[in-house]
Each structure stands twice: as C-alpha cells, then as structure tokens.
Design a binder for these strands. Structure first.
Ligand code: MN
Ligand code: MN
Ligand code: ZN
Ligand code: ZN
Lengths: 139, 139
DNA sequence: TCTTTCCTTAGACAGAGTCTAAGCTAGGAT
DNA sequence: ATCCTAGCTTAGACTCTGTCTAAGGAAAGA
C-alpha cells in the first residue's frame, strides 16, 4: 500500500478514514500538491471530507516529520511526502512545473565556517529555476 | 545617497516622492523587510502614503530586476534590495533572524546535466536553516 | 455500556495581497 | 507659463489562503 500510511502508523496517531484518504492522495501522484488540490482529489473518494480536516491533517503530518512543506511562490504551500530521499527542486519560471533533483554533494559543505555567524546550521534546501523544454524559447 | 534610487533612475520610471521614500526605506536598514514593515517605516516620513502604493512599488521594483522577492515561511514576502552581490540566506528556526551568506562556489555547478530534465537552468538559491547563538540550547 | 479523549465538520474569522474607480501629479507640448 | 495626458496614488472592497471555534461524532479503555 502507501508507504506514507505505513510511516504514519508508526507514530501514536489515529488512522481515521479521512487521514488515510489524505495520505493516499498525497503520495499517489508524485507531484507537489497544494492543500486545495488535495482537498479536491480527496473529495472524489470521500465527498463529505472537510477543508479543515485536510489542513489539520497536513499540518500534523508535517509536525510528525513525515511530510515536508514547501513554499516556492508565496502563494499556496505545497506538500511533499518524499522525505526519505533528500532532494531539492527545479522549477520552470514559465509554467511552474516542479521536478525533484539531486546535487552532487551536500550543500551544507559549501557554507564556510566564517559565513555561519555562529549558527548551528542543520539544513540546506536549494531551489533551482529556469525554463522547461516546453517553455524554452524556440530555436 | 541611496544606491537603489540610483539604479532605479536608470529605468524609464517616474521617481515620485512616494517611490523615493519606499526605496530609501528598503535600502536603509540592511534587513529583509515585509511590505507591511516598509509601509510602517515609510509612514514615519510620509504619513499619507498608502498600502496600495507600497505593494505596487515593490512589485515594480521586482519587475525591473532591482529588488528580489523572498519567500521563506509562506507568510509575508520579504524584499531584498541587495541584488548586486548574489548571495544566499541563513535563517534561525528559533527566532527567525535572517543573515546574508556566501557559498564557496556557484550552486549551479552542483546540479549535474542528467538531473536537469532538459531545463535551461539559470538560477539557484539556497536557504540554510539552523539555530542562531541566542537560540542554541544552553551547553 | 460508560466515559473520556480525540477527530471531524461548517462556517466565521484573519492575514496578505490585489483590484477598482476616482482624483492627482509630473513633465512634455504648446 | 499653461495645458494636456499618461501614469501615479488613494481608500476601500475584494480574493485567496489558511486558522480558529463550537458542536457533534467515532474510537478505545474501563
Ligand atoms: Mn520533492
Ligand atoms: Mn539578502
Ligand atoms: Zn515550463
Ligand atoms: Zn535565533
């Protein structure tokens, strides 16, 4: 079944029908959905599911560390169930399509000690931008 | 005077009193303000300035390429007049303080060709996260 | 079964940002 | 100097995204 559902069951967390539908919707398509997109798709399987439950559930999954919240554009947040393989994102400035990408090394290594301002630095995420093949200007 | 104002004058762009106050407010403190923070500070010098003008002006500066819009938290956007020196950001997960940082090399070099999905990749921005000295757990 | 806790729901609410319609200003033309 | 016009500013309505509240509903232990 859903690997996300499996991971969620390991926490002391009641797996209700609503939460299962949300988890399966989130993981099913390998894209980065907004909360409203998840609500629309979850409604196809469970028409009475509420907006509040979708938002609550996504926030809980994030708090449990099983989903990552992404903020690309300052509009809607997007939710990424793919937390096991750490990765970064490549976004098309034309159409907005977003791909998972992997760098040759851990970006934390690229921040020298004298640029750390005394911080304990634990995470680095990269947003690459450009134009996808469809949006690139015709040659 | 303000280097941002100088850069803006090079575009065919009417430099009104409102726009000058906004530009000087934005560049004056070397922090990353939200639109509302800029409005508050601009009001100290020009009490009748409107919210709409602040938002319009910031969006125009971004369109002119003289200011960069940042989206760290999915709440308010922040505006960065420091576009000349390209740099990245280090954020404290505790208190939210944000520092400009510089990496040892251009992050674009770390995305291999077979991870580019046919895109023309033009930009990479890194968000580093951690805890600042004040927020770090006591030793 | 009873009880307690947690979950779901509709709808009100809030924050951030955009849009509209009206009046105003800057700066070129005369 | 004055006129004209395009572009700028304004208040406030509106939209979008997300949170909160209060009430009822399901689950699991006693
Ligand atoms: Mn991803
Ligand atoms: Mn900066
Ligand atoms: Zn595209
Ligand atoms: Zn801190």
């Amino acid at each position: 079944m859903s690997d996300l559902v499996t991971r969620l069951r390991r926490h002391q967390w009641r797996m209700t029908p609503q939460r299962r539908v949300i988890a399966e919707t989130l993981e099913g398509a390998h894209v980065h959905y907004t909360a409203e997109e998840i609500l629309d798709r979850a409604c196809e399987r469970m028409p009475e599911i509420s907006r509040a439950t979708v938002y609550n559930t996504l926030n809980e999954m994030v708090a449990l560390g099983e989903v990552v919240e992404l903020n690309f554009d300052g509009r809607s947040k997007r939710y990424d169930p793919n937390v096991d393989h750490d990765h970064h994102h490549l976004i098309c400035d034309g159409c907005g399509v977003t791909k998972d990408v992997h760098t040759v090394a851990d970006p934390l290594e690229w921040l020298p000690g004298d640029e750390r301002h005394g911080f304990t630095v634990t995470e680095a995420s990269i947003t690459f931008r450009g134009l996808c093949p469809e949006c690139a200007p015709a040659r």
